[in-house]
Amino acid sequence: MATRPRVAKLRAAGLVPLGKTNMDEFAMGSTTEFSAYGPTHNPWDLDRIPGGSGGGSAAAVAAHEAPLALGSDTGGSIRQPGAVTGTVGVKPTYGGVSRYGAIALASSLDQVGPVSRTVLDAALLHDVIGGHDPRDSTSIPDAWPSMAAAAREGLQADTLRGLRVGVVKELAGGEGFQAGVTQRFQETVALLESAGAVVVEIDAPSFAYAISAYYLILPAEASSNLAKFDSVRFGLRVTPENGATVEDVMAATREAGFGPEVKRRIILGTYALSAGYYDAYYGSAQKVRTLVQRDFQAAFEQVDLLVSPSAPTTAFPIGERIDDPLPMYLNDLTTIPANLAGVPGHEHPRTASRPKDSLPTGRP
């Protein structure tokens, strides 16, 4: 278990691993349809997607098959499934949870985090898995305050009074957002105000370009990280019938071993990193990333926290977008900025319209 410090910490704390959940291949996807094991279904409506890439973790928790789960979040893979399954998903601060032993997608974006049914449960799980790990070069060495203590403090009366809450104008609605999502978000902001919070509109102009930058940075890093799956060092090996050179074996193995979405992103990333295009694409995307970080910094000089919808749409039918990558990518519109900046992100479902003790009608 030493190769997976998060699981080792869970076992040491007395938690029992129940199993592994389904996800999009190499965490590339927003619906958990790009899996070698088939799609995961949303337990509230089995004809709809559970989000992705960590839809299996969110579905298992939403279906009461497990009280807690882990996921990885590179551009929203914990939070977006939380939004469409009614679970709590947390992307910790970059470097807050060790990634040692985890298969890398995009090394400058990946982070492991909790999935639960309540904020307190998520905070308790974060306290267990968080902290410095010298085996992870990106792990933050500083001591971490207790997230559970902060969550319990948040349950006290008048916690929100005087808290300055920023509504990000670029992420609060508009084109691509379902009317119902925008309405529920506005209702939530009104509840914050009624509880004593001070709501401030925040202008973060670079956020409008975050998704474009992300889909250059992520494929570029994925292309580099997945190069090791070459049939020579480890993993699958496919030997073609007519040809046995190393190049032939590599080509046949990667053709057979990678799914369509993974291949698409490898091609995009390899192109972005190729000679003559590196500065124009990857380099420019990194400049946008710096602007996103500056927008966050400017925002936090005015407010204590930022709020936005966790996803622009509700859960849509399985198969509806699988052949059209652009709408699929836009599912991460509101979650990506936090990954680019390395700041924490948290998905908390509005549960007022759902009976407290209700259970999903189906199972994933």
Rank of each mutant, 00 (worst) to 15 (best):
A13C: 04
H126R: 06
T361P: 10
R233N: 06
E193P: 11
S284Q: 14
P337R: 07
G56Q: 03
Q186C: 12
V7Q: 10
I267N: 07
F26R: 00
P145K: 10
P317W: 08
V198P: 11
S224F: 03
G283C: 00
A275W: 14
K20T: 14
Y281C: 03
A106R: 01
W44E: 02
P92E: 12
D323M: 12
A106P: 05
P344N: 08
E175L: 10
Y278H: 15
S139C: 00
L120E: 15
E175R: 12
F26I: 03
V7S: 07
H41I: 02
E25N: 06
G180I: 00
I49S: 02
L340H: 02
R265V: 00
G345H: 11
Q186S: 12
A59G: 00
N242Y: 05
E301M: 11
D24M: 07
T32R: 01
G180Q: 10
G55S: 05
Q111W: 00
S310Q: 13
V167P: 11
A179F: 09
P327Y: 08
R265N: 07
P67D: 09
L125M: 12
G362Q: 03
T239K: 11
R117N: 07
A220I: 08
W144S: 11
Y215L: 05
G259T: 01
S77I: 01
N331I: 11
K263P: 03
P17K: 10
T31K: 05
P344C: 06
L273Q: 00
S206E: 11
A204N: 04
P92G: 07
R265I: 01
Y278A: 09
G38K: 00
V128Q: 05
V167E: 15
L10V: 09
I129W: 03
L192Y: 12
T93Q: 02
T361R: 13
V167W: 15
V165D: 05
A208D: 13
V115P: 04
T335W: 09
K356R: 15
V112D: 06
R289S: 00
P50F: 04
P17N: 13
V165W: 13
D230E: 02
A150E: 10
D203F: 10
A208R: 11
P360M: 01
P344I: 10
Q302D: 08
D24P: 06
L68T: 08
G342T: 00
V88C: 06
V246T: 07
G235N: 04
F316E: 01
G162F: 14
N22E: 11
L226S: 03
A311V: 03
Y37T: 00
S194Y: 09
T239R: 07
R264W: 08
G154P: 02
P327H: 13
R135T: 08
A66N: 02
M1Q: 14
S107M: 03
V232K: 14
V167A: 12
I267F: 03
A172K: 15
K91S: 03
K20C: 15
Q293R: 14
E170P: 13
E193F: 13
T85K: 01
